[in-house]
Design a protein around this nucleic acid. Structure first.
Lengths: 244, 244
DNA sequence: AGTGGTCCAATGGTCCAACCAATCTGCACA
DNA sequence: TGTGCAGATTGGTTGGACCATTGGACCACT
């Protein structure tokens, strides 16, 4: 390892400085996700900083999911780091109340509509073919199992996010996906949960294939509207509290 | 063999336990955002753990934006905590390149449009008056300084997010706001940067006041479109790299 | 060759006691 | 009545120590 890739730090604001130094180190050594980074003791020595300070910095990274610590083994990089990253530590109130779920659904509506519109603008013929393939798979699964198929449905939407050309859509919605799945798995007692949204998948695809951004946006809005509707019906049926 | 039949065993988890205890404490004392929580030293003593462990736990909360520490003053609650929260540590590879900036702008367009629509649906007369007040302030600042006023402009938009009734809008866009300001401060060499967006602030307000969700959505889309336009012009002028 | 057991060094997790730096509080002084 | 300084309070940092887990080296036995 290059000794010079870990120069001592200087000013106050230690732990932030440690993080910056670590970013520099990861770049200098071209560390890939999965690789191990130096031990806390070595980092402390190299950076001329107490081990506790190193630990505070690593705790921050661990909280952001950038790094994983394994006692007795070491600290491992979990994701790529770049000098200027944007961290959004979103904290959503518990997923078991109706209001929170509606909130995340509103975010999804916003992003879904925009992604569909961008997708309609930018999709290449190959992209359109790919989306159609996912759509066919989804429709097939829907018919055989006679109900919404979380997995295939999700893949269809992911394809749209990907083709939108903006990785942020996929990242944000993927993060929220977990929250939705708490309910997707248990359809709230609504027998045909998700049935209403089914036809809109194809209409969205058609608007994308026709390169009609506004049309794609409108269809996406309709799709989410049906999901909101199902959600409201389920909430009413279960007498879900509107607040925790 | 079923993978799930042998889950990893649970051994020690000091700092997680500390966090749980803190959640319990906050709920028991009914602490509101802004209030101060006990000293690190007191927490350490009460919980019968080392102050270092308390600090690791608090560092996590700070990283999630739940808490703010002020040296010499104390540690303050920044957001409501509930026993089951979902944390989304999104790390976006942002950067100073044109492409990343356009990506974040596309996210903002999605959220801005949706927030405006929701706002038009839900705003009370008082809310509308509040938004109009922010609009007046912004327009006033615009005229006197003959240019976009980041601060007042931002407050206008924030008011809309707030009235939308969905805190997630404000959280997400606030996190991205920092990224934008890197450029907002330096208008990319475009003299009248933001001028084009000015009139749409009022049209958005009018659509909200008229309780016209679709109209508000459309006007918001137009506003962002002008910003995208400015951005493209600035990028062309500065010959910004499209990738880092 | 392979299986299991034991030992040991490395590494993250926790603890302690002290000191530093920013902040707040209140009293003395003008 | 204000103002400024000194001490107390609080988070930030340090260095050193020990514990718990891990993983590899080594060994005995089959």
């Amino acid at each position: 390892m290059d000794q010079n890739s870990l120069p001592p730090i200087q000013t106050t604001a230690r732990d932030d400085a440690v993080l910056k130094a670590l970013v520099g180190f990861v770049r200098a050594e071209a560390l890939q996700p999965g690789e191990r980074l130096p031990t806390e003791r070595i980092l402390a020595e190299r950076l001329k900083v107490s081990r506790n300070t190193v630990r505070e910095a690593l705790t921050r990274w661990e909280g952001l999911g950038l790094v994983e610590r394994r006692q007795g083994s070491g600290t491992y990089l979990k994701a790529a780091v770049s000098p200027d990253m944007l961290h959004l530590p979103l904290t959503l109130a518990g997923g078991n109340d109706f209001t929170s779920l509606m909130h995340t659904l509103e975010i999804r509506r916003a992003l879904e509509a925009e992604a569909a519109a961008l997708c309609a603008e930018r999709a290449s013929p190959g992209d359109i073919a790919e989306i159609e393939r996912k759509l066919d798979i989804m429709e097939q699964a829907f018919r055989t199992r006679d109900g919404m198929s979380s997995e295939e449905d999700w893949e269809f939407h992911q394809a749209i996010y990907r083709v939108s050309g903006n990785p942020l859509f996929e990242q944000i919605i993927a993060a929220m996906h977990e929250l939705f799945h708490r309910f997707w798995e248990h359809p709230l007692g609504v027998r045909d949960f998700g049935h209403a949204s089914f036809p809109y998948h194809r209409t969205i695809y058609e608007r994308i294939a026709a390169r009609d951004p506004q049309g794609a946006r409108d269809e996406a809005l309709k799709l989410i509207a049906t999901v909101e509707d199902d959600l409201k019906r389920g909430a009413a049926k279960l007498k879900l509290p509107s607040r925790t």
